[in-house]
Structure formats: structure tokens, C-alpha cells
Design a protein around this nucleic acid. Structure first.
Lengths: 239, 239
DNA sequence: GCCGATTTGTCCGTATGTATC
DNA sequence: CGATACATACGGACAAATCGG
């Protein structure tokens, strides 16, 4: 049971769109009708609709109605990252076996160069981790992580080899709420080549990301270098 | 003057964060205080705050306040796409000269393969355009566009060589409201190599995108193949 | 082209819940 | 425990876009 009413309505409508109760290019029932079926206020309903619009499931049209724009075939394909899904969640969703190999794990003090690149304040105490992550035994990505040491007490190489996020959420009760990302394409380094079997590719897809916890503290900077094959980043933009 | 009150507040707060009136890691004034300074309702103010949170400018903390997480140095760098910014808008923002060369322009009927790839219904009448776009004379990207012919009446190669979006917005009064995107990395084709001076790179960054107009009609599918150099896609994810 | 009905967009005031301090 | 501050929800009012007669 969802905590909030708007979230329950959001999920219900989303499910109904996915299963075809409301299909591509159709109009949803009007707000007045939906407030009656869900027995809620118009504001609450509109919040749910707005979330569906953010997901590119529907598009509200002033004075006309709300059109469904979600297409079944267009569903997020197998090889895709999106939102804040973790490597393990992704593996589980696609029913493949994730493995992680920790290549290095060290405490460092943030210098000027690292500060400029990561956004951490100079002089911060950081934990730097390099990991190679594979799916069904095939190396897919090289992770370069920097954690704010004070924010991840008790982090060990053993934990890093399983799932840092499970540790953060489970033990430390910390959640990623906001994450800024930059996606670029870079020439593969010798390190990339040694860890990933790049085949014909001489480039990797790079996602840099700064993550903020619920206290608004940036506790993680990550640079993930992906094998180009199967790499796909899906997103929605609206204005 | 912005149309809506919430938008004015949003812009004002955004500006104050950018100019340092409220700086990184500080708390904004409380909602009660801000409703007084802006003389608006709490709902309206919260809407503006929520938009700032979507931009990763602030992070609201339940019971504690709203923390600024925007960093000056972290501002969207020169070579970056984001949101629905067009090539020309991007060129103007970075003060470089955009040029476009139309390589092909043809009417086609959407076949099964194209339908599966683009999301257009099979049998649709489409206009297919290939363009090479350069900044200050340096070819940066190859655009493969498919427009729904019925949605872009009067589109000509001459218009395509300037700006399709100016035509759509100015003449046809059509706006992109929602756009679904997929970012991948692909081996450069012979065509890519002939148009772009890829240098050491043997890959391109590819952004595929489906665009919906204000009527909820998908009127455009685009595949833009970017030179990896200077390519950067910035985004925010929240949960 | 006008007008009224419908439908979404904006805004307000208020009440209550919940997390933090 | 009380005070503070953000989160959720309701109901009502009016504006703006659309559509049919």
C-alpha cells in the first residue's frame, strides 16, 4: 500500500496504461470523472497526472483532455539505465548474474584537481574505490567511486564487492534523492582495455554523477565507464 | 514578465541562487517567510521550490528546511546539451556560428522496419532528412530526421537548411512539449566518417529522440550522431 | 464569428500529518 | 514535550483553451 493517495492513483493509472485499459493516443477520462472514481480532490488527481506526464506516459492538453503517449513497443529496452537504478537492480530486472571485483580501495584527502573534478570541498576525507562489474561473467563497466568518508562510516572492500547501496540504505538508512549526471564518450584508456573486452570499439560511454543524500549532502561522486555495447541511457525531457 | 506567478518566483529564486544570495549548502528562508516576501499562497511557492528541486538547485528536507545544492563551478559546461535546447539555441548560447548542410530530403512511406525503429505507425507519410551541422565550420553532428508529413506542411529543403524549429514554432505555431530520448554509443559508419572528422575516434554518440507536440502527436523521430569530442549530455535524476 | 459548455491551468485558504529540533 | 518546518489533501474560485452549435 503506497503511503500517499496521489502515489496510489499514479501507480494505478500507470498500470492501466501499460495493460491497455487506456491505450496509445486515447484520452483519459476527464479530471472530474477521475476524481469521482478515485474519490479524491482535483489537486490530488492532478498531481498523479503530472507525474505520468513527467514519465512521458501522457500529455495533458489545455481544454482538450489528457492523451496517452506511452507505446508498448517503446518500453525501456533490455540494455538500459534510467533514473537512479543501481547495477544490482538492473541485473535483477534483466535476470542476469551481477558480480563485482574490487580493484582498489583507499583513503585519500581531496586535492585541488580532484575537488575541481568531483565537486567535493578541497581537504575532504574521501574513500576511493575502483571496481569492475560484470553481468553473467562478462565485464560491462569500470566504476571509479569517491565517497565522503564521514558519510559512509564502516565501508569496507568486502561491502564494496557486494553492494554499496544496500549498505547505505539498509545499514546507514541513507538514500540518494538527487543525482546530477553528465554523459560523455571518451577514448578508452589502457585500464579500460585491460578490464573490458572492447572488441572493435576504441571508446567507452562515461557517466559521471554527483549524488546527494536526504540531508542535501553530496556524499558520492562516481565515474562509470561503460562498454559501448548494450549501453543505453533513456530519459525524458519536457518543457 | 512571466505568465504565471509560480514561474516568476521560480526564476527569481533561481537567479538569487546563481548570484549567491543563497549559496551552496545554505538553507532557503522557510516556506512561511517566502510566502510573505512573494505575497503568494503556500501552494504556489511550493510549486516553485519543486521546480528548483527538479533542476537539482535545491533539496527540500522534511522538518528541516530547503538546502541549496547548486554549485557555481558545476554549472552546465560549454559543450553540453540539455533539455530540449535546439542546435541553434546552443550555438547562440556559446557564441559560435551554426551552419547546416542538407544532404538529402525525400518523402517516404513508413515501412515495417522504420515503424519499429521510429515508433511511427506503418504506412505513415514521412519526410526524411539528412543534415550535417557544423559550429564555426567544424562538422559536429549528422542528423537523421523523420517528420510526420501531415504535421509539417510546407517543409522544404531550404527551411531544413536553416532551422526546422523556427519554422515549426514561428510559422506552424507548433511546440515540442515532450521528448523521449535514448543515448547510445555506436561504431562510426562510413557516412559518419565522411561527414565528421573523427580523428582517433571510431565511435559516435547517438541521441535518438521521439518528439510529441502539444496535441500529443508524435511528429518527429530524430537520430543525431555526434562527434564524441565536446559531446556532453547533462541531466538530473530524482526519486 | 459568437456563445455557451467542457476541460485543463492557476491560485488561494485551510486543515491535518509527520519529521526534526 | 512543544515549536518549527515540510508533506499531503481538500474544496472552491476564476482563467484560458477548445469544441460544437
Amino acid at each position: 500500500m503506497p503511503k500517499a493517495i496521489y502515489e496510489g492513483i499514479y501507480r494505478d493509472l500507470k498500470g492501466k496504461i501499460q495493460e491497455g485499459t487506456y491505450s496509445y493516443q486515447e484520452l483519459l477520462p476527464t479530471e472530474n470523472e477521475l476524481t469521482q472514481t478515485y474519490n479524491c480532490s482535483r489537486n490530488t488527481l492532478r498531481r498523479a497526472i503530472s507525474m505520468l506526464a513527467d514519465d512521458a506516459y501522457v500529455q495533458p492538453m489545455h481544454g482538450r483532455g489528457v492523451r496517452v503517449i506511452w507505446q508498448r513497443e517503446q518500453r525501456v529496452p533490455q540494455g538500459s539505465l534510467d533514473g537512479v537504478e543501481s547495477f544490482d537492480e538492473y541485473a535483477q530486472r534483466n535476470d542476469v548474474q551481477p558480480t563485482t571485483s574490487v580493484k582498489s580501495f583507499e583513503h585519500v584527502v581531496c586535492g585541488a584537481r580532484l575537488a575541481a573534478r568531483t565537486g567535493f570541498p578541497e581537504g575532504s576525507d574521501l574513500i576511493r574505490v575502483v571496481r569492475v562489474r560484470a553481468l553473467d561473467g562478462v565485464p560491462r563497466q569500470v566504476d571509479h567511486d569517491c565517497f565522503l568518508a564521514s558519510a559512509v562510516p564502516g565501508l569496507t572492500p568486502e561491502i564494496a564487492s557486494v553492494s554499496v547501496y544496500q549498505y547505505l540504505e539498509g545499514k546507514l538508512n541513507m538514500r540518494i534523492l538527487t543525482s546530477r549526471r553528465r554523459i560523455t564518450v571518451q577514448l578508452a584508456t589502457d585500464e579500460d582495455c585491460s578490464y573490458l573486452k572492447l572488441g572493435p570499439y576504441n571508446c567507452v560511454a562515461v557517466i559521471e554523477s554527483q549524488s546527494f543524500n536526504s540531508a542535501g549532502i553530496m556524499f558520492e561522486y562516481t565515474q562509470v565507464r561503460h562498454h559501448p555495447e548494450e549501453f543505453s541511457y533513456n530519459t525524458v525531457s519536457r518543457r
